[in-house]
Design a protein around this nucleic acid. Sequence first.
DNA 1: GCCAACGTTGGC
DNA 2: GCCAACGTTGGC
Length: 153
Amino acid sequence: MPNYWLFKSEPDVYSIDDLKRDKKTYWDGVRNYEARNYLRDKVKIGDLVLFYHSNCDEPGVYGICEVVKEGYPDFTQFDPSNKYFDPKSKEDNPTWFMVDVKFVKKLKKPVLLEDIKSNPKLSKMRLVQKGNRLSIIPLTESEFEEILKMSGE
DNA sequence: GCCAACGTTGGC
DNA sequence: GCCAACGTTGGC
């Protein structure tokens, strides 16, 4: 039984089309402790992930990917030239973690944030709760399935 | 571009 | 340990 997640990405930085082109990517730059704990401890190989576009004209879920490598240290935290560099993190005790995901599919049509907000079955998702900023969000199986249904999948 | 909500930092 | 200041997120 896989777990289900929603990962946010700004499409100007990395979009579902980038993942489709690359087939696979590492999920770098998560710098929030709660999200880090999910990546380090809970996100497992075979888990399914909704790929969400944030901070853009039409925020919403645009695709699906699958976890292919479980939590390991995010190497960008050790690279002074990287924008995610964290001088406080030590290689023998890394602060930040990443996972790898592979492209599964783009949704036939995106499920936009406004659609998610207007669906009462999805009102418990942290995505739509007040002040939400978490970039790695756990989903129930029924929430995941409901979003696929809304996309016409 | 604005700004509310939130997490982090650092002085005390 | 408190909390004001600050930086970031992300919808609008």
